[in-house]
């Protein structure tokens, strides 16, 4: 353990992180958002999931620094009388959770299929890659919209609302596997050409062990770069789906569904219901993207290109 820690401490990654102000700032903001949102049950002034704690009379109150503001609700309340700050904290937690789990699913699926395609080659390879092409050209968002629309229509809204978080993770997770699969496959093909894979095969290690022990570590840096960007993309996709009413329901809102519910009131002047979650969403996605950019510059992996 200490050995790995020392390796990490001496790595170029940490060195360049310490010299890059944008990366450091992005990381701090991200860390802050994650810590705050995941401790929301402890720090949020209200519990937005508890109907008893919500008074409809409190609805539509502007932020506290405005004239009609209420000191109890720092960032105002939404149309149902929920405290914006608390609802946003919980919502950010949902958005980040969906993003992380969706990417986890994507990467596991993509890495396995990519390893299989690259290692076995032949028909398996061409079948998987053709499948990846088709899926990519249909775009995640399009596939997700259609699938979720169909599910919502056939489940009925109520059941769907209970399952929404799993459905979102599943749909976003499954739809984006080609990103990983292509990159991993390209790395496997490149690694396969190198002598050392032949060498370990001569020693007599099985093909599965070769893949896991030798090829996988070499594909780590492209996977890390992709994953960062993909978390940002997954959060964006989730927000878009929720905004269309196909994602998280109003009583358990993510940032996207909060923006959706606020959009109806933006014309009547209640800008804060839309604006605050929007700012949080953009900052969240932006800092992840900035970290992704920085990682790409530092690790400079050979990413798959069309």
């Amino acid at each position: 353990m200490t050995r790995y820690w020392r390796l990490f401490k001496d790595s170029t990654l940490l060195y360049s992180f310490g010299r890059d102000k944008v990366a450091m700032a992005s990381f701090s903001v991200l860390l802050l958002l994650v810590v705050l949102s995941f401790s929301s049950p402890l720090i949020a002034p209200f519990d937005p999931y508890d109907p008893a704690g919500i008074d409809i009379m409190d609805s539509d109150i502007p932020p506290s620094w405005q004239e009609e503001g209420d000191p109890r609700f720092t960032l105002g309340t939404d149309a149902q009388g929920r405290d914006m700050l608390s609802t946003m904290l919980y919502g950010t937690r949902i958005s980040i959770t969906i993003g992380l789990f969706a990417v986890l699913l994507q990467s596991v699926l993509g890495i396995l299929l990519g390893l299989a395609a690259g290692y076995f080659g032949g028909r398996i390879d061409s079948f998987l890659m053709r499948l990846a092409d088709i899926q990519l050209s249909f775009s995640t968002l399009m596939v997700a919209i259609v699938v979720l629309a169909v599910f919502q229509a056939s489940f009925g809204t109520e059941l769907y609302n209970d399952l929404a978080i799993f459905m979102l993770i599943l749909v976003i997770g499954i739809a984006e596997w080609p990103q990983y699969a292509r990159t991993v496959r390209a790395s496997v093909l490149a690694e396969k050409k190198k002598e050392y894979v032949d060498a370990v095969r001569v020693i007599g290690l099985g093909s599965r062990r070769i893949m896991l022990r030798h090829i996988l570590p070499n594909t780590l840096s492209p996977i890390l770069v992709i994953s960062t960007v993909q978390v940002a993309n997954a959060i964006m996709s989730e927000a878009a789906l929720s905004f269309l009413g196909l994602g998280m329901p109003v009583n358990k809102p993510s940032l996207g569904s909060l923006i959706n519910s606020g959009f109806e009131y933006i014309l009547s002047g209640s800008w804060w219901i839309t604006a605050f979650p929007a700012i949080v969403l953009v900052i969240l996605v932006l800092v992840i993207n900035l970290l992704g950019d920085w990682l790409r510059d530092v690790l400079n992996p050979k990413l798959y290109k069309n």
Binding site: A239, A240, F243, A278, L281, V282, V285, L286, N289, D293
Partner: peptide, 10 residues
């Protein structure tokens, strides 16, 4: 990079 981080609907 800011543009990429703002969803279309926003």
């Amino acid at each position: 990079i800011v543009g990429i981080s703002i969803p279309v609907f926003l």
